[in-house]
């Protein structure tokens, strides 16, 4: 990603100017002064920051050889980049999503704008390098920024190889993933023992178990945290979107439910980045709104959680 900042910044600002015209409240922070800088988070232990909102690709980017939908998802990815996003998360498990990202990156000429994160998802622990190479070909990348062991499948063997790959400079960061609250005890044990750069786990305004052990442990061990299922796979919208937002959320830079859910997550001090998935440009714009403006403090976060529970 080196050497792209000024061009990227230009594109971000151009995108933001459009977004600001559409939704001026988006850029008002608590002090009332406009803020055009995206919320960035430092990767613990590294001299690098990434935007606090990334993008997932499960289901949404698995559109096969449907050229019409590939073009539409390319517009979703373009919107993401234009609004300051860089972190894209995939997995060989996500069907054709990797090919679709590859095609979209090609047509946008955006290989240098992405922080590419994928996973190793095979029970064969000797296949780590081969699977990473296959994914690289599908994304059209020589190297991934982050490789994660998907759902701890064959994690011992894969992690050993990933450590070697990192030492050789074949990947920049390594990590492990879980979701839906699965295998947290084993996950914590690996976090305690292994030199991980990132963990990926499920955290949202309703699924908060990780606040007890995994998030504090990530801070203690200086491990970056990527949050999956920030909208509980979309069910948060199905449950709450018809409800009014509380009056006071303007104070925390929130003007819609997407921002409400995402800002709740990224305001946790252990969280590096949340990776909501969407198939729609309009939803991407809403989600990227959470990358700007004020964030709730600890008290306000508690009020957000209480409000959702009261509905």
């Amino acid at each position: 990603m080196a050497g792209w900042f000024s061009r990227r910044q230009f594109l971000i600002n151009a995108g933001l100017a459009g977004l600001a015209l559409k939704s001026p409240s988006l850029f008002a922070n608590t002090s009332g002064t406009p803020s055009l800088s995206p919320i960035m988070r430092q990767i613990p232990g590294a001299n690098e920051s990434i935007p606090a909102i990334g993008m997932g690709t499960w289901i949404t980017f698995n559109v096969g050889g449907d050229e019409q939908l590939v073009a539409q998802r390319t517009r979703v990815l373009k919107t993401f980049f234009d609004l300051g996003g860089t972190v894209v998360d995939g997995s060989p498990m996500y069907g054709t999503a990797a090919d679709v990202i590859g095609e979209a990156l090609d047509s946008l000429g955006a290989h240098d704008r992405i922080f590419a994160a994928t996973k190793i998802w095979t029970g064969d622990e000797s296949e780590t390098r081969q699977e990473a190479a296959r994914s690289g070909r599908r994304w059209g990348l020589d190297q991934f920024d982050l490789l994660q062991v998907h759902n701890l499948l064959g994690w011992q063997g894969h992690l050993e190889t990933l450590k070697q790959m990192k030492a050789n400079g074949d990947v920049r960061y390594i990590g492990i993933t879980t979701s839906h609250g699965r295998r947290h005890r084993e996950f914590a044990q690996i976090m305690e023992r292994e030199p991980l750069d990132f963990v990926q786990l499920t955290y949202n305004v309703l699924d908060r178990e990780v606040e007890n052990r995994l998030l504090p442990l990530a801070r203690e061990r200086r491990i970056g945290v990527i949050v999956n299922r920030p909208f509980q796979g979309g069910s948060l919208f199905r449950r709450f979107q018809s409800e009014p937002l509380p009056d006071w959320v303007g104070e925390v830079g929130v003007s819609n439910w997407a921002e409400f859910f995402l800002k709740f997550i990224i305001s946790h001090p252990a969280v590096t980045c949340a990776i909501p998935a969407t198939s729609k440009v309009e939803h991407m714009k809403e989600n990227m709104g959470a990358l700007y403006g004020a964030l709730p403090d600890a008290d306000q976060r508690q009020r957000m959680a209480d409000y959702v529970r009261s509905l």
Partner: peptide, 24 residues
């Protein structure tokens, strides 16, 4: 994987595409 882990899976977790793509 433990029994409790298996119980945490729902039908949803096995469908890897959306309705729009299927109908198309």
């Amino acid at each position: 994987m433990s029994g409790a882990d298996w119980l945490s899976y729902s039908l949803q977790d096995f469908v890897m595409f959306g309705p729009q793509v299927f109908l198309r």
